[in-house]
Design a protein around this nucleic acid. Structure first.
Lengths: 228, 228
DNA sequence: CGTCTATTTGAGTTAGCTCAACCGTCGTGG
DNA sequence: CCACGACGGTTGAGCTAACTCAAATAGACG
């Protein structure tokens, strides 16, 4: 699911499994790739496809007309992107790193999934899980300080993609500081300063700007999880 | 749908209609009332019911352990409250004003709606519409100034429940300043000051703290819709 | 080796916060 | 019937976290 929440309750089930279970023809989907920086879709486009991220990371975002941007979510493998209630995408989606996706073609009959109940139920699970994650993100955007925001962000990634290296847990940060800032509702400078602060406090290490090693995950969680 | 977005594309369809269409027994739901201030459910409770607001206004919110609160949404008639991906509510829900709700009992088989495809499809529409509205709210929480936030909030209500009184459009504001503050990620004082500013600029009138008349809706929209 | 871009760091500013006082309404009890 | 207290809302004054603008640094790439 989307990386918006400090805790993930939802166990993703590949939509592929559901499709196969019900012997839907492979014609209704195919796989595709996108290079880092390439768009998958733009706000306003007809929402003809639903995407499942297989490899890499994508970013969904919305723009204000004066250029301010809000990153809505980073999509990691297993995440479903592009569900829309009205056949139009309401955000931009771009590949952050080189990405492989599975593309589901919308059923010709339009927006209804009622004639594919298993798929519908699966999408409903994804949608409600997404709502849940977005709610955590709300709490973060609305009520947390810069340190709490950055710590929360790192904890989500830690739990989702962290790999243990002798008592440290490391992961890559494919997105730019600007992406992180626009995700957390901060400026690039504040994000950078906050990373530096966490590094100076020996809570994390930054071998390079796109790699994080968490040394004191308990302290990091304490900073993030002032949430109940 | 939830009041989170400056623009509403989704035309709510009462779940009741869907139920009747498919001749589901009335036993699977009933109506209920809640007085202002009463809880409908709490974070952590088993998510046994899904609610549809019929009359009044409800509020969903989450708390940080130190008491900071984020109001996630205000639920107006037609809105669906309480969908969960894992059978547990992840927010509190309380009645803001005296409220009438329709209560849907979860199917005994558990979380799946696959055996009620029409209902599932309808819930999926609600869920994706909710995701859409939440995305607009993200932009607001993350990237807008206090004036833009308050203006956006008023525009949503204007479009949803505004009633024309000679060239003004009026509506009631049943929630407290504190609810509004926690919805917009501001403090009570900032909300109050912003209302005062809009009043002094003759953009709105405040006959009393819980009633708003919008005099210059174009100006209000301009303040809100710096969004694209 | 120079250029370009992303990131970090520094210095000063400000929007919104905190704390405190004040106001108006409403319900209660003398 | 009026005084009083409680509560929600408004206003004021000063503070601070995060912002803006600017400069320094560091890789990446031709």
């Amino acid at each position: 699911m989307y990386v918006t929440s400090p805790v993930s309750y939802f166990e993703p089930v590949s939509i592929d499994d559901v499709m196969h279970q019900h012997e839907l023809e492979p014609a209704v989907y195919h796989t595709s790739t996108a290079e880092a920086g390439q768009p998958l879709f733009c706000e306003g486009d007809d929402a003809d496809f639903v995407y499942e991220v297989l490899e890499g990371v994508v970013r969904t975002s919305k723009l204000l007309c004066d250029g301010r941007r809000q990153v809505l979510a980073f999509g990691y493998p297993g995440d479903i992107i592009g569900l829309s209630h009205d056949q139009i995408y309401h955000s931009d989606c771009d590949a952050v790193s080189d990405t492989k996706v599975r593309v589901y073609h919308k059923n010709a009959s339009g927006t209804s999934f009622a004639d594919e109940p298993q798929l519908c139920d699966q999408f409903l699970r994804h949608a409600t899980a997404e709502v849940h994650d977005m709610q955590e993100h709300f709490l973060m955007l609305g009520r947390k300080s810069a340190v709490e925001k950055v710590a929360s962000f790192l904890v989500v990634l830690l739990d989702r993609v962290g790999e243990n290296n002798d008592c440290k847990s490391c992961f890559s940060l494919p997105m730019s500081r600007s992406d992180i800032a626009d995700f957390l509702g901060l400026t690039i400078e504040t994000v950078s300063r906050t990373f530096t602060k966490l590094r100076k406090d020996k809570i994390i290490e930054l071998p390079n700007p796109h790699r994080v090693c968490v040394c004191k995950s308990a302290k990091l969680r304490a900073l993030a999880e002032r949430s109940s």
